[in-house]
C-alpha cells in the first residue's frame, strides 16, 4: 500500500517509568526492520519523558516521536488513542506493534477499529511473510493450540506481543528524537485518572526461581511464602487463585498471564490446566507436589511428588533450614 512505511512501536510508560516489555517489542521490531530494510520508530507519550526518549535508540529505535503533556502522565484511553490516531493518520506507518499489557491491549483494540485494520492479539512470535504481511502465533484454547494469524487487510498492520517473549537487546547508535505537540484541549478529555493506589510488584517473567501456588493450597500462602524465601524464589499463582482475588493477576502464570523463563519452578497443588502449563514450559526444571498421582501436571513435571503439600512442606522447610 502506497505511503505506509516503517515499523512503529508504542512505548508504554507510567509516571515516567518505561514499561520493560515495550523494550522487548522494540528490540524485536529492530531485528524485523533490518531484515526488511526499514526504520523503527518508537512512539513515547508521557508528562516529562524526554530523558527516557533519548535512551530508546539503545534498544532498537532509529527514531523517536515524543509527545509530552501533563495529561499523559498516566495512560488513559481517550487522550492516548486520540494522539496516536492523529500521528498514524499524518505519518502512515506500515505496522504498529504494542506490548500486550493491560494498557497496550486497551489502546490496540481501539486503534485497530479506527483504521479498520487487522490486529493480531497476544502473539508469542512475530514475523513478516514474503509479501510483507505481519504474521504472529497466537495460543488458543488455553494454550493447547497455536494459531498462525496474518493481517490481510488495512494499514497499519497491528499486533500486541505477550510480555516476556522477546529479550531486550542492545544496539549501537542514537535515535533521532522528534518532539510533537499533544494538541490536547484539557476540557475535551473524556477519561482521566483521579486517584491511584499501587504497590511495588516483582516482575516474575524475569525470575530465575518461582514457587507457584495452585488451588491445592487453598490460597493459604504462609508455607508457600516460607519456601520461596528459603530458596530465593518469587511467587506465582494459577488462574483460579487470581480469579478468586487471592492474588493479583500480575503474578498469574500461564497463557493469559505471565510466561516464565527461569531455571526452576516448584508447582504446589496445581492440576495442570492447559492455559497454566504454557506458562511453565520454558522453565529449566519443574518440580510438582500434588495429592493426585495422575494429575495432568505430571506430564509437565521433571519431578513429581505424590502427597499432601501441608504435610510435606513443613518437613521440607525444617530440613532446608537445618541445611
Amino acid at each position: 500500500m502506497g505511503g505506509w512505511k516503517g515499523i512503529w512501536v508504542f512505548i508504554e510508560q507510567d509516571d515516567g517509568v518505561i514499561e520493560e516489555s515495550s523494550l522487548e517489542v522494540l528490540s524485536r521490531a529492530r531485528v524485523l526492520a533490518e531484515e526488511r530494510g526499514e526504520e523503527v520508530t518508537a512512539v513515547l507519550l508521557g508528562e516529562a519523558v524526554a530523558g527516557e526518549a533519548a535512551k530508546l535508540g539503545r534498544h532498537g529505535a532509529h527514531r523517536v516521536i515524543l509527545v509530552e503533556d501533563p495529561i499523559l502522565k498516566y495512560y488513559t484511553s481517550d487522550p492516548y488513542s486520540r494522539i496516536m490516531a492523529r500521528l498514524i493518520e499524518e505519518r502512515r506507518p506500515d505496522s504498529l506493534i504494542l506490548s500486550a499489557t493491560r494498557n497496550g491491549r486497551d489502546l490496540a483494540g481501539r486503534l485497530a477499529v479506527k483504521f479498520r485494520t487487522g490486529l493480531i492479539a497476544h502473539v508469542v512470535s512475530l514475523d513478516y511473510d514474503d509479501e510483507g504481511l505481519l504474521m504472529g502465533k497466537v495460543p488458543g484454547f488455553g494454550g493447547n493450540i497455536m494459531a498462525v494469524v496474518k493481517c490481510v487487510k488495512g494499514r497499519p498492520q497491528m499486533a500486541t506481543v505477550t510480555p516476556g517473549i522477546f529479550d531486550i537487546k542492545e544496539f549501537e547508535g542514537e535515535a533521532v528524537v522528534e518532539k510533537v505537540d499533544s494538541g490536547l484541549d484539557p476540557e475535551q478529555v473524556k477519561t482521566r485518572v483521579v486517584d491511584r493506589e499501587i504497590k511495588e510488584l516483582i516482575d516474575i517473567s524475569k525470575s530465575e526461581r518461582v514457587v507457584i501456588a495452585g488451588m491445592g493450597t487453598g490460597g493459604r500462602m504462609e508455607l508457600v511464602n516460607q519456601l520461596a524465601e528459603l530458596i530465593g524464589a518469587d511467587i506465582g499463582v494459577t488462574r483460579p487463585l487470581a480469579d478468586m482475588g487471592l492474588a493479583p493477576r500480575d503474578i498469574q502464570v500461564g497463557s493469559t498471564g505471565v510466561i516464565l523463563k527461569g531455571s526452576l519452578a516448584i508447582v504446589l497443588g496445581a492440576s495442570g490446566a492447559p492455559h497454566f502449563v504454557s506458562g511453565i514450559k520454558d522453565m529449566g526444571t519443574v518440580i510438582s507436589i500434588n495429592k493426585d498421582p495422575e494429575a495432568p501436571i505430571y506430564e509437565y513435571s521433571d519431578h513429581y511428588f505424590v502427597g499432601d503439600i501441608f504435610e510435606i512442606l513443613p518437613l521440607l522447610l525444617k530440613k532446608l533450614r537445618e541445611g
Binding site: L119, I145, M146, K281, P293, H303, G307
Partner: peptide, 28 residues
C-alpha cells in the same frame, strides 16, 4: 482483517517425569 493460516498443536516439552511416592517424611 486477519486470517488464520494454520493451526499447530503445542507439544508438551520433554520432561523427566520422575514420580516419587512414600511417606511425607520420605518425600520431604
Amino acid at each position: 482483517a486477519t486470517t488464520v493460516v494454520d493451526l499447530e498443536e503445542v507439544k508438551p516439552p520433554t520432561r523427566l517425569k520422575k514420580k516419587y511416592t512414600g511417606s511425607a517424611e520420605e518425600l520431604a
